[in-house]
Amino acid sequence: MIAELVLAMLFGLLLLGIHRKVIARIQRRPGPPVWQEILHAAKFSFKTTWVPATASGALFAGIVLVAVGIWTAAFFVMMTGGSLLIIFGIYMLHKIVEHAFGLSSGSPYGKFGGVRSVISAASEIPLFVSVAVIGLFTGSLELTEITAWEAVHGPLFFTAFPAVVAMYLVLLSKMPFGPFSIVESKELVSGYKTEHFGAWRAGLEVCNGLKTTVLLATFLLVFAGQLPVLWMVIGMILLTVSLSFACAVTPMLSPFDSVTIQSLVTALMLVYAGIVFTGVLP
């Protein structure tokens, strides 16, 4: 599965490249070539690297390993059809990784990026409600059992449409240049990534590639069921393009508004979960 891992990482970076290209075309700019993000990772990987004097050394370097490690684990869980709960647990823990990235350097820009990432964690945690809704419908949170349920009852996309919307917002808040990407907004230079350069940044890019693939593939697995590989790839590209449209036409929200909107969505999801809970369970 090592080959799949590397392919998934490269494919994720390619998706991020497509994301940038589509946004650029919508905004009538030429935009970078689609493989730009792969080149980016390669470029950072051969820069001379050291650790800033003010940084907390072990954390500064260790967090890069953790970042790649957790998404490798998530990739394994997804490929073997493990628990959806684990994947979303890792998704939440990515917030802590961002927090650590930002704080470990001592730079004020990084610090504010990290703090913002924790702020938005508060409003994303309850998106677990949509995971619970899936559990209520299918009776399990194992990916294999969910896809098996869908093979019998049809895709969850139609059955649990509000959960699709909520999960789509989760994806959107992880895409760069989106309305909820307050952690990377430009007044913070590069947010939590500001001080991680060279090989550290390349490691982060690897993590981003894996993360994009895992999240998009999980979304498709959960809501559309098990698809052939080709359809899976096409689906992920289409999903990316739709996310790019959403990112391109919406301005970045202020941190306060971003958290408010996510909290509102959470509240709506709670109501929906309540309805499902009383309706589906006898």
Binding site: M1, I2, L5, F44, S45, F46, K47, T48, T49, A61, V64, L65, V66, A67, V68, G69, T72, A73, F76, G198, A199, W200, A202, G203, V206
Partner: peptide, 23 residues
């Protein structure tokens, strides 16, 4: 196998990058 890969993959990737153009 999963444990070895989860531990080894990040270390290998980051160390490879560090090695590439290290002083």
């Amino acid at each position: 196998y999963a444990a070895v890969t989860v531990l080894g993959f990040p270390a290998a990737v980051v160390a490879l990058f560090l090695w590439w153009m290290a002083d």
